[in-house]
Amino acid sequence: MNIQICAKPVTAEVSMNKVLGDCFQEFITDTSDIYIIDADLGINRLLTEDFIEQNPGRYINAGIAEANMIGLACGMSANGKRPFVHTFGFLASKRALDQVYMSGAFNMQSVNIVAIFPGILADVNGGTHMTFEDIAIMRTIPGMTVVEPADMVQGKEMLRQAADLHGMVYLRWDRVGNQRFYEPGSQFEIGKAIQLREGNDATICAAGNLCLEQSIIAADLLAEQGIEARVLDMFSLKPLDTLTIHKAIDDTGALITVENHSVIGGLGACVASTMSQYRYAPIEMVGIQDEFGEVGTVKDLQVRYGLTAVNIVAAVKKAIMRK
């Protein structure tokens, strides 16, 4: 792994949506076997209609038919193709779960699922479109790789690695990705968490752009109060880096997890479960507290569901008190 972490997070130069479009174009141009399948969510606009015309058949709009889309991709994979499918996270993980499981994983096929608008990032689409369960669901599928890329650099790398990985991959994809944490050219290893910030008083484990951004702000606020919090990018949700978690337990003695996901079955639950094979440390879980989503701007929803630096600071102090 060769990872260059920005000294401080910077504003991302391009959105992760643009990264997605650029990568898809690159895949179509540079390979003959990668196909992009979309359930009518505008990938044609990202690729551009001209590009699609110049590369006939490589982009498929499967229409508003997610179950069929997954089946198509699995059939194409059985024929030796490498499909990427693109739809809302809630549709990939809930509506088409049986297809992902049976036609995909059970058949040992290789399909890469780009699952957009995770958690509260579905913002103005509201509660019907928010998935607070997809990490929990996807992690239980044997052989499934689950990643939540943190930024434009890691996102591009994850797409490239997914293309070459045998087996099913679920990429929880934030289309915006305001912050950039990594320098371009960084190489990541699935299964290995990254320490974004040093600290020995507590460890904040988070995944995704929003949660990492808030975690770093929280760590800075805590530092002003003399508390040094380690921040770990847990982008690889399955396989999970249990060694780094165990080291964090040993070094810092208190864990805080931050997720744009339910605290039931998500990052917090996985981190807690690693303790069963090691030893206990107090753990506080910041995330969606077993409730449905609702409509709002991302900023308002952060406050509504507690995904804020202020809330993380409080959770860190609580965890430390419990040591």
């Binding site: 997954i70 089946g71 198509l72 991709a73 194409m76 024929n79 049976m102």
Partner: peptide, 29 residues
């Protein structure tokens, strides 16, 4: 995965035709 000669594992009804369509699409490509 288990049985030589079987092209795709099935059992959850309704899924096979999508898979077959995907294979047919890939063949046309």
């Amino acid at each position: 995965v288990l049985t030589p000669g079987v092209d795709f594992s099935t059992g959850s009804l309704g899924q096979g035709l999508s898979v077959a369509a995907g294979m047919a699409y890939a063949d046309q490509q």
